[in-house]
Amino acid sequence: MATCDNVGAFLEDVAKEILLNFPVKSLLRFKCVCKKWCALIEDPKFTIEHLNCSKKKPQQFLIYDCGAADDAPAVTVTSDYGIPSPSQGDNSQRFGVILKLLGCVDGLFFMEREIDKGILCSLWNPATGEMRHLPAASMEFQPFDVYPRHFGFGLDPMTKDYKVVYHYHRDGLLMFKGFMENLQT
């Protein structure tokens, strides 16, 4: 085994190479290993490198169980291990009524939900479970608007922002922005 001096060097040079190969769940846990790992994993540059590494690996699955019984919320599951059995619910997240799910772009999804008779638009990262609500305060949606809503979701390659475009067929174009640079994907 390498000596203690080597272990110091190991942390600097090699830890990142290994960390890039971890799934997101492990990264979130291993932020607890030491300060250096925590700083490295939270570094936005690391997030981008990790995303590029992940793109070379087999794709993950997102399973949307729209057949949930009665009032039970819809269930979504992601997995590293191929399609999980329904009992493997440890990675699942539960949501209320999902009206629209767009994506994915770099592992992110746009989600439109009906909550308390209002509409909530969010960007969702299933790998980290993070959810960012979009500033929809200026937009008054009604669940049963006469006019259908249209959404588009994508990455602006110039600014590196993930953008959601909302189109209301009468009033033209409305745009809002979500800054997602800190999200693990």
């Binding site: 272990v7 190991f10 942390l11 830890a15 846990r29 291993f30 290993v33 030491c34 300060k35």
Partner: peptide, 15 residues
Amino acid sequence: SVRAVREMLKITNDL
């Protein structure tokens, strides 16, 4: 686990 990783890589916890 976090503990096992620290031990396998001989990392001291400084948090």
